[in-house]
């Protein structure tokens, strides 16, 4: 291991280093803020467009189906209910195939101990 030579000199931070640190942080913050702003507005725009589409269809006299927006909690409740419902179903066969183990009863005819090759060793 090399000898320990740790310096501690705040003057090593020059003007350029500070510019990199401050500008870099601001850029990351602004970039993600722009993305956040855009997607917040996008949702509002989407709502506005869907309402407009509905009203246009309404004017044409056709039947309009409203777009239902559900919260995550409602989705979770529906998913849980479906899961419980399907886990209660028993009228279907399982799709997993298994191999049933068959235990054979012992017979001297199939014995390996008294097989012909073992007996030959004693000759």
């Amino acid at each position: 291991m090399k000898t320990l030579s740790i310096t501690f000199d705040p003057s090593l931070i020059d003007h350029y280093t500070l510019v990199i640190a401050i500008t870099g942080y601001c850029i990351v913050l602004i970039a993600l803020a722009i993305m956040a702003y855009f997607f917040t507005r996008l949702h509002t725009l989407q709502d506005f467009l869907s309402k407009r589409r509905i009203s246009e269809k309404g004017n044409s006299g056709k039947e309009v189906q409203l777009k239902v927006t559900m919260t995550g909690e409602e989705n979770a409740a529906i998913a849980a209910a479906l899961y419980l419902f399907f886990s209660e179903l028993h009228d279907e066969e399982k799709y997993v195939m298994t191999i049933r183990k068959v235990s054979k009863t012992y017979s001297p005819w199939s014995s390996k101990i008294y097989g012909i090759w073992n007996t030959m060793k004693h000759w």
Binding site: F8, P10, L12, I20, A21, V28, L29, A33
Partner: peptide
């Protein structure tokens, strides 16, 4: 914004490592 804010650790340590030479 929280993901962006946490990047302060990187830039602060960048300055810290410079101080240590």
């Amino acid at each position: 914004l929280l993901g962006a804010a946490a990047q302060v650790g990187i830039f602060a340590t960048f300055l810290g490592a410079m101080i240590f030479g």
